[in-house]
């Protein structure tokens, strides 16, 4: 009974119920929604936002916020694709490692400022986003790498899929879910993962108990950067295109998804399951807006409302819990 109660009170449960309700509703309006093709497309649309959401989740649990991941993703993606094109390299493992490392380095750059100079994460990541984007466009170039120049190995990787009952499910969905499981294991089963929660709860106490909090910050932002870099290259392999101006405006969608999933912007709270559900809900909402032929510009309004509503709900819940 108690278990059931805690289950019902979890924000994951609420998000799940809302997801099911919306799916039933859309399915009733347009039964084509339930076709495997459509559902698989929906899942495919989760991949990039999902991996980026895992990146933001890590930072948010530590009590920070990261708005630099779209810039890092763009840089990692563009640099790697250009390098592949220049060298004619035909593998995918090395490029993904490269993109992840570029993201990691960018993330550590954030951590230096946040940890050493005790700066506010929002300001640091706003700044680093601007610097990285500026350097990329100014020094590296602005031309889009189109399908004709894209490395074929990347395109082939992005196209790999599973045939399930005649419909194709992108293999990238499994890459995403695999990463989610890894991040979940890291956050819940390793001391460093738990230290991110502890740091987000109370940085001073974390230090007192004996955590190396400096390391915690480096790991949180480093991991966030690495995930962003990986997501960047994966994105270009899925759309067969590398645009250095890509990912503009992703901040809002991704942060909305993480907040929807129950993470607290004040730190300490958040879960991988919640984030995955939050991402699915957000993508579902945007997707159904398209199905209902609602104009693109209105999607921003909806996403904004979703952020405010979800944050209001969590704040209300916290106040109730405190009373």
């Amino acid at each position: 009974m108690d278990r059931l109660k805690t289950l019902l009170r979890r924000s994951e449960t609420a998000v799940f119920v809302i997801v099911v309700l919306i799916m039933v509703l859309i399915g009733a309006i347009n039964p084509a929604f339930w076709q495997a093709d459509n559902l698989f497309n929906l899942l495919r649309a989760n991949v990039i936002i999902g991996i980026m959401a895992l990146s933001v989740l890590t930072v948010m649990i530590s009590g920070g916020i990261d708005v630099s991941f779209p810039a890092f993703a763009a840089a990692a993606m563009y640099l790697t694709v250009l390098a592949m094109e220049a060298t004619g390299y035909q593998g995918v493992v090395l490029p993904f490692i490269g993109a992840t490392l570029i993201g990691l380095v960018c993330g550590l750059f954030n951590a230096v400022f946040i940890s050493t100079f005790r700066m506010i994460p929002l300001i640091v990541t706003l700044g680093s986003a601007s610097v990285v984007r500026g350097l990329l466009l100014g020094l590296v170039g602005t031309s889009i790498v189109n399908i004709d120049r894209m490395p074929p190995a990347l395109i082939a990787f992005g196209r790999s899929s599973l045939d399930i009952g005649g419909a194709k499910l992108s293999a990238m969905v499994f890459v995403y879910l695999g990463l989610a499981v890894l991040v979940w294991l890291f956050l819940t089963r390793t001391m460093t993962g738990r230290s991110i929660f502890a740091y987000g709860d109370d940085a001073e106490s974390a230090k007192r108990v004996g955590f190396n909090t400096r390391r915690t910050v480096y790991v949180a932002y480093g991991l966030a950067g690495a995930l962003a870099g990986f997501a960047g290259l994966l994105h270009s392999s899925m759309i067969w295109l590398a645009n250095p101006r890509d990912f503009v405006g992703y901040e809002l969608d991704v942060i909305a998804a993480v907040v929807l999933g129950g993470a607290s912007i004040f730190g300490g709270r958040g879960s991988v399951l919640g984030t995955v559900l939050g991402v699915f809900l957000l993508v579902l909402i945007k997707n159904s807006l398209i199905i209902m032929r609602i104009d693109n510009t209105w999607q921003g309004v909806v996403v904004g409302c979703v952020i405010v509503l979800a944050t209001a709900l969590t704040a209300w819940r916290d106040r109730k819990a405190a009373a």
């Binding site: 929660f197 502890a198 709860d201 109370d202 001073e204 106490s205 974390a206 007192r208």
Partner: peptide, 8 residues
């Protein structure tokens, strides 16, 4: 302040 972690 007990130095505890409320989320854990």
């Amino acid at each position: 302040d007990f130095s505890l972690f409320p989320s854990l």
